[in-house]
Design a protein around this nucleic acid. Sequence first.
DNA 1: GCTGGCACTCGCGAGCCAGGTCTGCCAGGA
DNA 2: TCCTGGCAGACCTGGCTCGCGAGTGCCAGC
Lengths: 390, 390
Amino acid sequence: MAATSDPVAHAALRAAAQPGQAADAVHVEVSLPGEVADVPVTGEDADGSGEELDDRKRAVLRAIVTEYVSKGEPVGSKRVVDVARLDVSAATVRNEMSALESLGYIAQPHTSAGRVPTDKGYRRFVDDLRTDPALDGPRRELVQELLGGATDVEDLLARTSSVLSQLTRLVSLVIAPAVDTARLKLCELVGLGPGAGLLLLVADTGRVEKRSVELPPETTETDLDRVRTVLAEQVRGRRLGEVNTTITAIAEDAPSELREVLRAVAEATAPRLAEDTVHHVFVGGQASLAGDEAFEREHLSRVLQLIEERVTLARLLADATADDHPTVRIGEENEVEDLRAASLVAQRYQLVTAGSLGVLGPTRMDYATVLATVRAVADQLQATLTDLSR
Amino acid sequence: MAATSDPVAHAALRAAAQPGQAADAVHVEVSLPGEVADVPVTGEDADGSGEELDDRKRAVLRAIVTEYVSKGEPVGSKRVVDVARLDVSAATVRNEMSALESLGYIAQPHTSAGRVPTDKGYRRFVDDLRTDPALDGPRRELVQELLGGATDVEDLLARTSSVLSQLTRLVSLVIAPAVDTARLKLCELVGLGPGAGLLLLVADTGRVEKRSVELPPETTETDLDRVRTVLAEQVRGRRLGEVNTTITAIAEDAPSELREVLRAVAEATAPRLAEDTVHHVFVGGQASLAGDEAFEREHLSRVLQLIEERVTLARLLADATADDHPTVRIGEENEVEDLRAASLVAQRYQLVTAGSLGVLGPTRMDYATVLATVRAVADQLQATLTDLSR
DNA sequence: GCTGGCACTCGCGAGCCAGGTCTGCCAGGA
DNA sequence: TCCTGGCAGACCTGGCTCGCGAGTGCCAGC
């Protein structure tokens, strides 16, 4: 285990987190100060497992999870006694473990091997993490420094994705906030050739939408100029979500020679959900997924494919971040078949509307650290975002 | 081995090749008509291996390569006799194989296993592919159909990447042509808030460049309007490559109150090579790489990382496509350490200036089919591109 | 120059054994 | 009632052997 503050590693990370660059990753340690916060780590909200575990069982489970996560091998009763610093014998722990197994929290890969946490075990472990883990100071400052350098929202989100994947060594996902309520700063129609046009929409967040427009072939340059003027006058300043209806309305009232052109423009602004989201999911750290032994080949390929598609993933992430609390979806809790062996840790962030961010990795991940990191990055993202839009 | 024309598969591919979607891939077969073209498949151009192989040795090598590529197992003398339809005994082939081995074309993983092609063997095999392989009709039409539906250049390139990776089951790379000579259709400066602006450049190819501009804090809305007018008058219609110098010049002649703003704008148009290329490499099919058994974990992770970086890859691809012929870089021929186990098949395409495209995969790939596919896709891309810019 | 035959080399899988680890259970003690 | 030490049993792991099969190299003969 690396030291918590290693200047070399920090420097490497600092250099690496420029989007589009890469470097060997950095191991993250997290301090778990005693401050018990009241913020619960929400999840599926315990199916029927209200069954209370006594302190010792919880300690045993915690020991098994942390040990298994860090070592990757099934852990036996003896080791549990060691790491959990329990003042009882291994035999007692064995009894506890037996109980935990019949409750479904742990399982053994084969008779007479150690125990391994089940999805339910991880879930319980995460739910019991009431101590709100915080990222250590240096790392927190690092995140702040890296995100602070962003020039606009898009750049910021790209950096966020990069930081997140570097810190966690997992696949990072960042979805831009829905911008329906963002104000249009520019609405321009550019002619590219006979019958082909390009509509540019620029929001005050710095987001640029471009849509190709199929113009009626007989459209003249003068027509375009007139349309341009109309758009500039009537559309600028509107909310992005209103654009389509606004232009459609304009088209109906327009002089007949412009009507077709405006209809084409309106057509181009029709919401196309898939494409809209595809372009605004930032993904990073796919390579680390391949390096992770916890995933076997089969899953790896499936998960990568899912990542490549983006749209499913975007929906998933959005679904997972319904409220302000960090959310953890563990293994089977994911509805998507291909994510059976994976966990998702996600959190919402707010600007005017909410965006979400998170990481995806094998169920065998260091939930405490990951949660701390996701939370810290989300907070910092939100702060920088607020800064940026003043 | 799937049949060459399977309507179901075709339909699946058709659906799949919409960028952002995915489907199970389709096995590609290629017809190798006898038409012997004179176009050589260029590579590093035979180091010192001018040593002529007689016909039979070539046949043996060919058999070993094709058999190993399709089966993935070392191939022995007996099987060579079978697949190469040689009229000699296995013993004779053994002698030939022994010779091929001492010439460095093949190797055995361990004593008394079959032989496996070396990088040099693949190179020889590829060089001997003087018969210019062509993609079969149906597939060619399919490519044509899919690329034909593109609305603008960016969309077209995304589709190209998608088609390429689906057809080859390898990682596809597409670099947009350098657009220095494209004409500017629009040059707009948008104010996003105090001190922050966004410069939009739209080329007649449909490419949109956006650069954030750090404006002097005291810039007024009126200043912006004036700058906008200046830009519209002086910059529109220029070549993309001239923009920076043009604006710099304008800045010097401008009234002092606008000078700083224009300098900031000029600053934003300074060429930043890394970023420029990063945004214009289209990559697809990373998932298939993970599924390919030919790559072991270690390499896989490294290659994925390289892909994520983009910039190295872009340079590599550009380097590889210096002339009009398809280029194959096999294993060790790649200068980049991490690509030691990979091969790159690339080709240039021309619009006004050249762009490049290619695929990346394990050295154990079906070079004939891949070459045919890359070539066909490049041709079609070029045709569609010409169409699109009329 | 080709061929069939033969000896040799190895990888691979099965079977076996010893060592170690971990569990489950039980009887005794606090 | 709960904990504990002890012990038998299960089973993985690594090492070893053995036989099989695949594939080679070589050689003598045609």
